[in-house]
Design a protein around this nucleic acid. Structure first.
Lengths: 220, 220
DNA sequence: AACATAAATAAGGGTAGCCTAAAAATATAT
DNA sequence: ATATATTTTTAGGCTACCCTTATTTATGTT
């Protein structure tokens, strides 16, 4: 089986575990990967034989420790490339996800470490997600979705989940809602929950879906 | 057919056209790609259908204009990555060929141009080979193998062909025989042709095989 | 508990890319 | 010019990954 394809399955399993909990359903995987459920079943059987996932037919799938380790390696490569592409090649933060998806599969261990060194061992990607260390260890700073931040409480943006959503990222970038920015919710619409924010001394409006992808850390 | 595989066939056809002339034989391709001649035949039929090569059974293969253009794009990506890897990530010039082989297949048009810009549009790779421009145009400076340089004539190293030969590159690097270095042949062994050189005010010995891979431009 | 519905797998088929063995074409030597 | 050797292609098979259709399993409702 082609390395690239397998790696994409494993990464998707990981993402779905994180966002929707474990175990992951065949149908979710099929939807996210754009293939039929039958293809997923088949692949899960193979990945299971290779010891990368725990898979019980009809019961869903989760990564084994070994599988998790592999995914952390890929995540590291992916996010290091994102840092390089934004900081040195001047790409937009909505463009780098797709490029990094390609590059990560062509990155040797040595290259990854040299790149990390060149970049000064960054701790997060441009979207604020943590970069696993060379051992695959991962420290995630605790935060809450902006939707759950109490009114009038100052907070700092940690991370934008959904880093592959270009429309979202373009929009947030225009609003200046990027990691490390301080924000405060000053109004919540009683009709549809739309938030009114104060950030960088300006007033901004953010819908609930967008807000749910913005992870913040309350201050004090 | 997987893009990667196809691209590697095309690049190999190009390399063999350059080094051994056109058309390229099935058996050469099979040898260089490490696959059976039967697999090559099959692939050539498919590439021919796609208009990438001119192929006559039993008669060898050569790239079409379209195929050539594709290869130039890949060559550009490959050599740009080599420059990046040596200049910014501090990789050895014997290591970058393999890494660039992987990366070139994962490089979009936009990424290639951004990278070129970041690197200051370099004209040659670390081994001295020209980098095609964004239109795929290619200007190769004329030179001769070191084996054909007249004795006592000063020359400057243009290029090391055989950039994938690690042992050769390590050795030449130790001797300081890299592009832009001035050299002069001061002795040729009448027994086996081994050359004695003067470069950087030091005396160096180079065998004929190694010397045949060193392309120089005579001065004055 | 029985039934309807949804989800997942099994069965069967396709393509790309690889192989080996056999057959065909070409090159070489006598 | 013919026989032999070499090269190349054809034929037939294998695996990875994908598909659609049919069947099985799980789930939720009454």
């Amino acid at each position: 089986m082609s390395r690239q394809t397998v790696e994409e399955y494993m990464e998707t399993i990981n993402t779905l575990q994180e966002t929707q909990g474990s175990p992951v359903k065949t149908s979710s995987l099929a939807r996210f990967m754009g293939v039929s459920a039958a293809s997923v079943s088949e692949m899960l059987r193979r990945l299971s034989e290779k010891g990368m996932v725990d898979y019980t037919p009809y019961g869903g799938v989760s990564l084994t420790e070994e599988g998790q380790k592999q995914v952390m390696k890929l995540t590291r490569r992916h996010r290091l490339w994102e840092v390089f592409l934004t900081q040195y090649l001047d790409m937009g933060w909505e463009e780098v996800y797709d490029e990094a998806c390609e590059l990560e599969h062509s990155t040797s261990d040595m290259l990854a470490e040299k790149l990390a060194q060149f970049l000064g061992n960054p701790q997060t990607c441009p979207h604020g997600s943590p970069i696993p260390d060379s051992q695959g260890r991962y420290k995630n700073e605790a935060g809450v979705p902006l939707t759950e931040l109490p009114m009038d409480k100052k907070a700092v943006i940690l991370q934008i989940t959904n880093e592959s959503n270009k429309e979202l990222l373009v929009c947030l970038n225009e609003l200046g809602l990027t990691p490390d920015t301080e924000v405060k919710v000053i109004r919540k619409s009683s009709f549809d929950g739309t938030l009114t924010l104060e950030a960088k001394d300006t007033i901004k409006a953010v819908g609930t879906e967008a807000a749910s992808y913005i992870i913040v850390k309350p201050l004090n």
